[in-house]
Design a binder for these strands. Structure first.
Length: 616
RNA sequence: GCACCGCUAGCUCAGCUGGAUAGAGCAUCGCGCUUCGAACGCGAAGGUCGCAGGUUCGAAUCCUGCGCGGUGCGCCA
């Protein structure tokens, strides 16, 4: 028995029932999934095996009879009470108290029952995805914290993780902004992100001129938005576009002065990105930045490789990669010889798989780019860039998250009517969190009473940011994102602060007990009360939950788990006295349960990138 | 025109390879602190799971069609 199954009742029961099914069907070589699940209702026990019904169906047997055979054959000695058959063929299992205690003891180790995945290859997570010269908006919140969470989870599972912040730092838009700033003779050393953002938008507006693009958009039934967008143009654009193109050529040519100015735009942008990352408790620094410019010398090679492999062809002066199963090809070189973001993305796929040696690449990017990534990934597969040097197949996934809109389905606005930026959201969250914490600290009985304003603000930030991050991470990634500040920064119910609160309560109990941790950690578990049992069973699901989050790329499962655990603790705490209970054995057992819950909550919150204060 | 995503309680959402009576939170109505932290717990009420067929012992879940909403669709990124 591995250290993981030692504290995972489902894995243990799976093993036992697998054998029993072979025996019951009279064929020892049968290896069918017993389908072990937690019981939906405590009256049916702790777990159920649901395999008998489907197995009986495919073999033309009576489901209840087969269930009975399996229940008789299964060896649950030292694990659970005898299995019972119910309903159309459910097999119910109730764990033995000693076994439950032993499993808890096994979980109460350094890794909390989280399995280590032995895999020498890396996992690359494409996250954040900011554009130079643009303010971060609430959409970047998702790309940043979902990516950060997954990176933490894979790291926790023992994988080597590469965080890749694929900056939009190259190409015509940046050149346009740079050219516009230079024309306006703006002092780039005193640049603010707001100046940059304004210049970016103005440059974009000025540069909208694209007759060829418009014709193509109409001819290929492009969406109405695109057609309208391309239609609103004027001839003045020609001049600024030309200026931008000249600037881009000089920049690409290595012009020293231009290169320095370009770097100033990046520095100005990233300063705020890293600031936001610190506030959000996201692990993201300069070492994770690898922008489009990094790949600029590889773009020609990408096109050549496709041409050489016979996978690309010329079409109307451009180079495209056609697909057999759809009309739309992937454009990798424009008719004017320039490259596109598809070219860059192909270079990045190749780099991530073959140079970073990742057999798992996850793109946490807006769902609207689904078609684009499908094309890029398919093209990469055609040419074999989805395989590591030794031939190992890499799994490349676009984790597309939904649009971020207000209740009115329009872009978010602040009270003053400006665009709602990420910093606006974070500032508001920290402010409200601090106000909440400060208000509660006024109570003389509050554990936070008497803390300094600085301390209260630190806690307030942790609480406010937890509210925002939890609200985002707890809903299904792929769904559209309906943004409501008041609900997002809520502190009651199904929220991040609810989980933090449980953690703080436990920290307080443990401190108040005066019992050394070493004594607590050595106490035998004595799980008797229903609320204790429920809490114990919930605890034991932690390891598989973390693994499931990585498999499914769904942070919301971890949120849901932690919410259930905190809830089970609160119910337990209500029903079972800890410090006040007479029996010292029970008291120590409950303290150890508290300690294990605290560690699990802290670990889980950390995987979400949420700080768990001792007091709040 | 084609493709993709979504539709579950008044609101916001869970629902894990099809399983027992579809679950939370918010809001509403009750109950519980001379305090092991009430940012909590217990209970009540609230649902033709978009609609219609189909598959089967069993469907919110799988298949088909339709409706509504959103998004995307070659020289921007």
């Amino acid at each position: 028995m591995s250290s993981t199954t030692a504290c995972d009742p489902i894995a243990l029961l799976d093993e036992r029932f697998r054998k029993a099914i072979g025996v019951a069907l009279g064929d020892e070589s049968v290896d069918a999934d017993p389908i072990i699940k937690p019981s939906g209702n405590p009256q049916f026990g702790d777990f159920q095996a649901n395999a008998a019904m489907s197995l009986a169906k495919s073999r033309g047997m009576n489901p209840r009879e087969l269930a009975q055979k399996i229940a008789t054959a299964v060896d649950l000695r030292g694990v659970a009470h005898p299995a019972e058959v119910a309903g159309p063929g459910f097999i119910n299992v109730r764990l033995d108290l000693d076994a439950l205690g032993a499993m808890l003891g096994s979980m109460d180790s350094a890794n909390l029952g989280v399995p280590l995945l032995a895999d020498r290859w890396g996992v690359t997570v494409d996250l954040c995805g900011v554009n130079v010269a643009k303010q971060m908006h609430v959409g970047h919140l998702r790309a940043t914290i979902i990516g950060d969470c997954l990176a933490r989870v894979f790291t926790r599972l023992g994988r080597v993780v590469h965080r890749e912040n694929h900056l939009g730092d190259w190409g015509l838009p940046i050149a346009m902004t740079l050219a516009a700033l230079r024309r306006a003779k703006v002092d780039l050393d005193r640049l603010t992100l707001e100046d940059l953002n304004v210049a970016y938008r103005r440059a974009q507006a000025e540069g909208r001129h694209d007759e060829a693009g418009l014709a193509a958009a109409i001819a290929t039934h492009a969406g109405p938005h695109r057609v309208i967008e391309l239609s609103i143009q004027n001839d003045d654009a020609r001049a600024s576009i030309d200026d931008a193109k000249r600037t881009l050529l000089k920049l690409q040519g290595g012009d020293e002065e231009l290169r320095r100015d370009w770097q100033k735009l990046i520095d100005c942008t990233m300063k705020e990105v890293f600031h936001a990352a610190r506030i959000m408790n996201v692990t993201l620094g300069p070492e994770h930045s690898r922008g489009e410019s990094f790949f600029r010398d590889r773009l020609g090679g990408v096109v050549e490789a496709f041409l050489k492999a016979g996978l690309a062809k010329e079409d109307k002066g451009a180079i495209v990669v056609p697909f057999s199963d759809r009309e739309r090809p992937l454009l990798i070189r424009k008719s004017d010889g320039g490259f596109l973001y598809a070219t860059t993305d192909l270079a990045a796929v190749r780099f991530r798989v073959q140079e970073l040696e990742s057999n798992r690449v996850i793109y946490v990017v807006d769902a609207r780019q689904r078609d684009h990534f499908k094309d890029v990934f398919d093209a990469a597969a055609l040419i074999g860039w989805d395989r590591l040097p030794d031939g190992t197949q890499a799994h490349i996934t676009h984790l597309g998250f939904g649009a971020v809109l207000g209740k009115d389905k329009r872009p978010l606005k602040t009270r003053s009517g400006e665009n709602f930026t990420l910093m606006d959201l974070l500032d508001e969250a920290v402010e409200r969190g601090t106000a909440e914490v400060t208000a509660r600290a006024q109570d003389p009985n509050a554990p936070t009473h008497g803390l300094s304003a600085k301390e209260l603000r630190e806690i307030g930030q942790a609480v406010g940011i937890a509210a925002v991050k939890y609200a985002d991470l707890s809903s299904e990634v792929t769904r559209d994102y309906v943004f409501d500040l008041d609900r997002m920064i809520a502190f009651e119910g199904d929220t991040g602060p609810y989980i933090q609160y449980a953690h703080a309560r436990i920290s307080s109990i443990l401190a108040k007990s005066g019992v050394p941790i070493s004594t607590i950690a050595a106490a035998p578990f004595r799980v008797a009360e229903p609320a204790e049992r429920q809490l114990a069973l919930t605890l034991l699901r932690y390891g598989t939950t973390v693994r499931d989050v990585a498999d499914a790329l769904e942070p919301s499962r971890l949120c849901s788990y932690l919410q259930t655990l905190a809830n089970a603790f609160n119910a337990f705490y209500q029903a079972c006295p800890v410090l006040k209970v007479e029996d010292s054995g029970v008291r120590l057992s409950r303290l150890r349960l508290c300690h294990l819950v605290r560690r699990t909550l802290a670990d889980g919150l950390d995987l979400l990138g949420i700080v768990a204060p001792e007091r709040m």
